Computed example of a mutant assay.
Amino acid sequence: MFQGFRDSNSSMFQVSEFILMGFPGIYSWQHWLSLPLALIYPLALSANILILIIIKQEAALHQPMYHFLGILAVVDMGMATNIMPKILAILWFNAKAISLPECFLHMYVIHFFMFMESGLFVCMAIDRYVAICRPLHYPSIITDSFVVKATVFMALRNSLSTIPVPVLAAQRHYCSKNQIEHCLCSTLGVTSLSCDDRRINSVYQLSLAWTLMGSDLGLIIVSYALILHSVLRLNSAEAASKALSTCTSHLILILFFYTILVVLSITHSASKTVPLIPVLLNVLENIIPPALNPMVYAFKNTELRQSLYKVLQLDFKNN
């Protein structure tokens, strides 16, 4: 239902709320998607909480590498929790209405956590670069203080650079339609409803993505190129294999994270003909990494896996 009010500063009629329609093209049976999503969400939360418990309890994991992993777990939980309650409310209770301030806040948090995840991958790549390429300097460079400073820098960078996204969206006039063909307050979905010029929104959105994500991905590529160059110079095949094994889990997560982003960017151009695909990818980008990240690290990282077995065995004995 269209709801709105007359803007006192103009003759335009301003909507008072948006309606998140859900997944385009499958409205009649989209509630069935709640089944896998309702399973993935608690799985993501429990897996990341378990990672935090293990890192806290095991003294052997009190290292910068695992501190970054713990921060990533917190970001993943925030990313999933920001979107899943609203999506499940839409699918289960048809609670599609969302106020404009709530929608703009939702938009801000989505961008913040997405850029935060990207920034943490950069920090973890730098950690692996120093550990493998400059092992003698690792204890003096990658310290607890470095972890704190890097995390604070990324948080400030992402929070400040993301502020214009909802601010610019809030300055648009929404006067004709209020139904968003999405289950999230995506920037493109919201601003496409505006009745005035939205080019500045698109330009800033594109510039922000290229500046932050592009620079992050560039630093990651450079870090791993230097790591590969250093590993290939090792005389021992065993040492080279051990060095690369410490990066395997990180590389898997990076490839998955940025691959979805690239595919999402490409499919936006086809959103008019197949609107479901970018919406579904947008949701998966926010829920799959939080569920996947702790599992990949638990299976691919020997120290973390051994600590997991140790903690679980202690719990079983206590029970």
Rank of each mutant, 00 (worst) to 15 (best):
Asp216Ser: 06
Lys300Glu: 12
Asn158Lys: 04
Ile71Ser: 01
Ser223Asn: 07
Leu160Val: 13
Pro85Glu: 04
Val130Pro: 00
Ile252Met: 09
Ala150Gln: 06
Ile54Met: 03
Ala59Glu: 11
Leu61Lys: 04
Ser161Pro: 10
Asn178Ala: 10
Ile142Leu: 01
Leu91Ser: 05
Pro166Cys: 11
Thr259Asp: 09
Gln179Asp: 13
Lys300Ile: 13
Ala169Lys: 06
Val152Glu: 12
Leu91Met: 02
Asn9Glu: 15
Pro42Leu: 02
Phe153Leu: 12
Met1Asp: 15
Ser192Tyr: 14
Asn158Leu: 09
Ala170Asp: 09
Lys56Val: 11
Gln57Tyr: 14
Phe115Lys: 03
Leu217Val: 05
Gly25Leu: 06
Leu251Lys: 01
Asn286Leu: 08
Leu234Glu: 11
Phe13Asn: 09
Val165Asp: 01
Asp127Gly: 07
Ala270Thr: 11
Val222Lys: 10
Ser249Trp: 05
Gly22Ser: 06
Ser207Ile: 15
Asp216Lys: 04
Cys185Phe: 00
Val190His: 04
Met1Arg: 15
Arg134Pro: 02
Tyr174Trp: 03
Phe256Trp: 05
Met124Pro: 04
Ala169Leu: 06
Val152Phe: 07
Leu244Trp: 12
Ser307Tyr: 12
Ile288Glu: 05
Gln63Trp: 11
Val222Met: 09
Asp216Thr: 11
Phe257Gly: 09
Pro135Lys: 01
Tyr41Pro: 01
Ile49Val: 14
Thr143Asn: 09
Leu219Ser: 13
His173Met: 08
His182Asn: 12
His106Trp: 00
Ala155Ile: 10
Val222Gln: 08
Ile51Thr: 15
Ala298Trp: 10
Asp127Leu: 03
Val311Gly: 02
Lys177Phe: 09
Val147Trp: 01
Ser28Asn: 10
Ala80Asp: 04
Arg128Val: 07
Ser145Pro: 11
Ala44Asp: 01
Asn235Phe: 10
Ala170Cys: 13
Asn235His: 10
Met79Gly: 08
Ile53His: 12
Leu284Tyr: 01
Ser161Met: 14
Ala125Met: 04
Met154Gln: 15
Ser230Lys: 01
Ala240Leu: 10
Asn9Thr: 15
Ser161Asn: 12
Met295Trp: 14
Val109Asp: 00
Pro278Ala: 05
Ser8Trp: 14
Cys247Ser: 06
Ala73Gly: 07
Lys86Ala: 00
Thr187Tyr: 04
His137Glu: 15
Gly218Tyr: 15
His137Asp: 15
Thr191Lys: 02
Pro36Lys: 05
Leu217Cys: 05
Pro24Arg: 02
